[in-house]
Design a protein around this nucleic acid. Structure first.
Lengths: 350, 350
DNA sequence: CTGAAAGCGCTTACAG
DNA sequence: CTGAAAGCGCTTACAG
């Protein structure tokens, strides 16, 4: 353990960190006025403000978040609550949140959790209350848990829910609109000429499973196509379930010529199943995924998939929490979009 | 934004959170004595302690980390500083740190960074100083940057460096001993009967590149084998570099019958190169990776690789920082170990 | 638009 | 072993 060095033994850089009192004294004002400047209060005369800002810049003063938090009754910390098992999702979300928090004085604390745990809600409450978090970002599938949202309301903690569809007041929601991604997948496969099209859904406990499917089905119908009952099967968003369902679909008497998997993991499983059954992708069967995580471009063939802009979504979520305006941003950047790679082609000639 | 509810409008659960003063009053002692109990000071009579602990338990009192931090001069936050681009590594490390921090009152704040950025050191200093972090965990490759360690020493912040080999005083080091993993890979390939064995290293700027290689080479030599100059090539720990180097190695007049890639990403690239050149794995060529990240079991064939116990390493790092004893734990659990899957077999009959 | 007072909930010396 | 005082660096009412 590194022993903090005392001023006496210190190196060159031992000058005590400036406090609000130093700034007030040097600027010839009260600390309350300095506080107003820090907190961007409009009730400060322009010249007073400038003088104070000059001193702040000169001393490189940064208010102590610890002290600020204590007086303010709330820490300058934003919590990320997640249970998504995909590391790529988690890291992208963190990066997006940090993008927005950069230079804001806020810091990001992380809280992985398990909704199935009996202590799930108590742990969450402890996390938020103990640190008096400024706010939390809930991501799927925790974001879809009404108990978690109710808890945030009960303890008066600001929160934003990231989910595929609206589940709460607009101010609490960032919608990823997975339905649109499902539509894009359908359009792509229909355009290629497929008619025998299958869908492997995620588990029914995830909203995204439904959204991705209904967007897909809806867009097929609009093109005069139909998702046959036998071709709509239920997976679990896992690689293994992709193998299983893929094997079943491809072993049918009349197998589909295209399979839309609810996420990349399952798509990877479907590719594996095709390989095991000696089917070529995309010559015999086309495969589309959802997410565009790293695996998509590592697979063979590389995977056509629907990209979800997770980092951008994270940025929006943090801005919302910090009360920053998040309008005026290109709304397209936060929508799912199709990435065409090698795993899709026209259906085989019958 | 959720408006914090005031006591007046509150629900059932609005009782004010207990403070140290409440505990002191109810236990009939001074708050200083309560403070001693909170901080596990030995200078409290057993019966006094018990009485106080009873009151604490009854009110569900949790000391405010914010206030504690302000008085203590240091926040109860541990920072994770990383630049490893692999999400699986980052998430596993976070989980390990949190395993150890659970129930400790500490919280984890994350700081991704870029060593090549001109503001790298200033950003890091800002991160640590602004929040007065209790301590930080540095992971590769930041952990190998002497400037970062020097900065921590200068500002008196406790730190632990996770690296493949010792680079600092023992108290600051958690060694992952990648060299041993290299040895295991060599032993496995030698046992299978390979003699024409190649190695694709990571970039020379990573210590792990050297450690993995020298362990590998050393164990080969011990078995009377030799890593030929032409078979030792330099990659960049990326999928693309794995494809390139794999293609080159397999296009040689006398290609190797086994390739040890410095990490799973590059191994995935080597598999891809083999496929492109029409070589079967493992019939024509065996491939071994390093890390055992998720991709290893998703590849086809599934990848024989060296598992690194990242989560366990994270746990150790956090315990070290919090001043907890980390001996008495099975030391084997923190060592790299070989996982044999489908990508390795005996060399083809000449 | 600005300030003096009180307080946020703890801990660190300093006494005893 | 225990406590009264002072202070950590800010902000919230409350005045003016």
């Amino acid at each position: 353990m590194s022993k903090p060095r005392t001023p006496e033994e210190g190196g060159v850089e031992t000058r005590r960190r400036a406090t609000i009192n130093d700034i007030a004294r040097l600027a010839g004002v009260s600390k309350k006025t300095v506080s107003r400047v820090i907190n961007a209060s409009p009730f400060v005369r322009a010249d007073t403000r400038e003088k104070i800002e000059a001193v702040i810049a000169e001393l490189g003063y940064v208010p102590d978040p610890q002290a600020r938090g204590l007086a303010y009754g709330r820490a300058f910390l934003i919590g990320l609550v997640y249970d998504n098992p995909n590391p790529q999702y988690v890291v992208n979300m963190q990066l997006g949140l940090l993008d927005a928090m950069k230079g804001s004085g806020f810091e990001l604390v992380v809280h992985p959790c398990d909704r199935a745990s009996p202590t799930f809600l108590d742990d969450l409450r402890g996390f938020v209350e103990r640190q008096r978090l400024f706010g939390v970002v809930l991501t799927p599938s925790v974001s879809e848990d009404e108990r978690a949202a109710a808890l945030m309301n009960e303890i008066g903690c600001a929160y934003v829910r990231v989910a595929s569809v609206s589940l709460d007041k607009a101010e609490h929601m960032i919608e990823t609109r997975d339905r649109l991604g499902g539509r894009e997948a359908a359009a792509h496969l229909a355009d290629l000429g497929h008619t025998r099209i299958a869908f492997v859904s995620g588990p029914p406990t995830f909203r995204s499973s439904h959204e991705r499917r209904s967007g897909f089905e809806e867009a097929l119908e609009e093109r005069g196509l139909h998702l046959a009952k036998a071709y709509a099967v239920e997976g679990a968003y896992t690689y293994e379930s992709g193998i299983e369902r893929g094997r079943e679909l491809l072993s049918m008497a009349q197998p589909p010529t295209a399979i839309f998997a609810g996420n990349d993991e399952m798509a990877a499983g479907v590719l594996q199943a095709a390989r095991q059954l000696g089917r070529r992708v995309p010559e015999d069967v086309s495969v589309v995924g959802f997410d565009d995580f790293q695996i998509a471009s590592r697979l063979w063939p590389t995977l056509t998939t629907v990209r979800t802009p997770t980092r951008e979504i994270g940025r929006l979520a943090a801005e919302r929490l910090m009360g920053r305006d998040d309008t005026g941003r290109d709304p397209k950047s936060r929508l799912p979009s199709l990435v065409v790679r090698e795993s899709t082609a026209a259906p085989p000639k019958a």
